[in-house]
Design a protein around this nucleic acid. Structure first.
Lengths: 243, 243
DNA sequence: GTGGTTCAATGGTCCAACCAATTTCTGCAC
DNA sequence: GTGCAGAAATTGGTTGGACCATTGAACCAC
């Protein structure tokens, strides 16, 4: 057999554009937030049409690597390196109770593991960051007397980042969005998330104690309270079921 | 403070194109492999420029939803529905040991949970399917005297499907592909995966025994052997490290 | 300073070609 | 009729140029 004879690429303009652009970003040491050259300039320098440049940038935009602002420019949104692996994952949205429960099962598995890894790997800076987010969240809880989605989420994100594995944050972020796309309002449960509050600090305590299994156990308890809330919401919704 | 004032969207042409196209696919009940209308036709029907259509299709192509063949047409590559969540995973420096290890950490968390859920939820038909895949894999192992990636993977997939949560299969499949995109050859380790062989049957045994924690423990042992293999491969590669 | 106005820069869209790969049709030889 | 080579049509890929919509900075009146 004549394997490993990849078909020659007679046309791969936009791919070449992206490779060149990745090299440029590397050479200029550009980081997130920084602006990269104009489409017109890129087209001229690379000797390709502006349309081709646009198709290439559209791909990067779809991968979340870049953000375009009309009238302003194109800005890096994440670190870009010539050797990156992209794996687009599209999830069929489950808009019902079972679908929400599915996202929680994934979170249960991943959050527990992330908390355990965090307890092992987190450095001093990461611990300080997590503690700060925890304090902000607790303050918001006291003043507004209820869980605040945003501050709560930032606390969890800090843990994922400290796990040393970027995939945790990316995947759980997808679960989070999938969950909140349909949730918005807590399905009639007024104090949604209330029960999860104390576990945030217990998780943090186990992490600073460098106790991975303890952190895992506390994370599992936290997710369990969310699952309970969801079940209560589903019960409330039973009567007004749509479709 | 004036929160919850999302910026108004004045232009979103290509997004609108994708939404319309998703609706079209749904209405015509198009599935993977089928051809969708010409760019020129889409442009005419939707009253937008062909360029806009192309940018929209470029996005879908980047997400792996669609495949374009010059001179032939644009074909669906996966099922699309109007309500989909797209999650582009990017693994910086995925070509090295750390990147591969990241995918294994996700798999460790998810495979353990999936095995436990499977032990609780799998029905008779699912158990039979898993056992069949296990027998095929063991037969392949004996005849070829080594792990066979394909049969091995099908066994695991059967477990994920029996977990009752489709997200497990989708996410772990993404990890699997991310892992194998660079692995191809086992980094010089001849009997890669050999050590994992016995755990396939022990996992299955714990599942049929309806023992979720036992299944979880065996799944963790299996992943641990793969991680060991990977570490050995990394050690082999140490000397010939590039860059 | 505050609030408008102007103006250049930049991404977004459109058009009309042409190129390159593929598919389909056509017509000829047999 | 069959088979096949070449022409023609189809379709995605690229180009260049034009114009629109938004942004942001400079400028100006008050």
């Amino acid at each position: 057999m004549t394997d490993s004879l990849p078909p020659i690429q007679t046309t791969a303009r936009d791919d070449a554009v992206l490779k060149a652009l990745a090299g440029f970003v590397r050479q200029e040491a550009l980081g997130p937030g920084q602006k990269l050259p104009t489409e017109r300039i890129l087209a001229e320098r690379l000797k390709v049409s502006r349309n081709t440049v646009r198709e290439a940038l559209t791909r990067w935009e779809g991968l979340g690597l870049v953000e375009r602002r009309q009238g302003s420019g194109t800005y890096l949104k994440a670190a870009v390196s010539p050797d990156m692996l992209h794996m687009p994952l599209t999830l069929a949205g489950g808009n019902d109770f079972a679908g929400l429960m599915c996202t929680l099962e994934i979170r249960r598995a991943l959050e527990a593991e992330a908390a355990a890894l965090c307890a092992v790997r987190a450095g001093k800076a990461e611990l300080a960051e997590i503690e700060h987010k925890l304090n902000v969240m607790e303050e918001a809880f006291r003043t507004r007397d209820g869980m605040s989605s945003d501050e709560d989420w930032e606390f969890h994100q800090a843990i994922f980042r400290a796990s040393g594995n970027p995939l945790f944050e990316q995947i759980i972020a997808a679960m989070y969005e999938l969950f909140h796309r349909f949730w918005e309002h807590p399905l009639g449960v007024r104090d949604f998330g209330h029960a999860s509050f104390p576990y945030h600090r217990t998780i943090f305590d186990r992490i600073v104690a460098r106790d991975p299994e303890g952190a895992r156990a506390e994370a599992l308890k936290l997710i369990a309270t969310v699952e309970d809330d969801l079940k209560r919401g589903a019960a409330n919704l039973k009567l007004s079921d749509r479709k």
